[in-house]
Design a protein around this nucleic acid. Structure first.
Lengths: 153, 153
DNA sequence: GTATTTGCAAAGTTTTTGCACGTGG
DNA sequence: CCACGTGCAAAAACTTTGCAAATAC
């Protein structure tokens, strides 16, 4: 993880170059909070046309390897990237309204420890996504609170 | 969930017909434990050539809607289907060796309750996949225990 | 008999790749 | 300068769709 290093230092330390595209992608992920490659591309294009979708894919993969961003599986079949600038967190995603709630990794600490103690399994908290039904959607008898008419996934 | 109904009754109750293809797909998912559409297709083909890949996709979707199977996201961008015949469970998946450990929903009961109490969020346990590092891979300094040379995802 | 389901082939989406050109260090 | 990175276009991988033929009931 980038700890106290700047992203520039992290790239350099890995033997990678600082390019405008890499900065644009990193900034876009920070701005968006959570974003699929397509969304990152769209966000970058708002600031500059000087980027190609395949570069976005390559850059996201690189930044993920370097720990400057992380990805989880919030959408059905596209990874969703998020910044690692803040505290480590995981996600609750509502099946119905697709709202995403971010929770600090402290909230899962006890359960995480149980899995280590009993199974020797170390949870990757930053990658964790928990699906279910949020309070609002559970309360709505039909689907009044839904942004998305389809309750799939 | 299919509770005490047979799969035949569940299909009928939904107004759907009993077809050989639907039985073959359901059996394949039960046999495989966890499987992507491709793997289900391959398994079905071992018993019969009388099925088409698009039918597999359509059938998996239908069986999922009816609760006869469930899907989680174990692979990078393909849903993985599993039977609902046994007890409800969730999955631990190792990033490195890709081994899948199934745990009974009881194992997550306390944490599940915390999320309900504090956030009103009801976890969909059957859909839950937790990524991390298994005991064997944590012990292996380089990567001796890996089936998969790549530690991605 | 007839509405549902399937097979087939074609189209749609999303992601990856090869390669020549451009550029950061 | 020169190895690394990017744009472009084409290919690959995966999934969905339209429609005629087959079939469950």
């Amino acid at each position: 993880m980038a700890d106290s290093e700047t992203w520039q230092e992290t790239l350099r330390a890995g033997g990678y170059r600082l390019t405008p595209q890499r900065e644009l992608v990193l900034t876009a992920v920070d701005t968006l909070g959570h974003a699929t490659p397509d969304q990152v591309y769209a966000e970058v294009r708002r600031h500059s046309t000087a980027i190609n979708l395949s570069t976005v894919y390559r850059t996201l993969e690189l930044l993920d390897e370097l720990g400057l961003i992380r990805h989880a599986h919030i959408e059905e079949r596209t990874p969703t990237y998020h910044s690692t600038a803040g505290h480590e967190h995981f996600h609750l995603v509502c099946h119905h309204c697709r709202n995403v709630i971010s929770l600090s990794s402290e909230r899962i600490e006890r359960f995480r420890r149980e899995l280590v103690d009993e199974h020797g399994f170390q949870v990757d908290v930053g990658h964790l996504t928990i699906f279910g039904t949020c309070a609002a959607c559970a309360a709505a008898p039909s689907g009044e609170s839904r942004d998305d008419p389809d309750g799939s996934d």
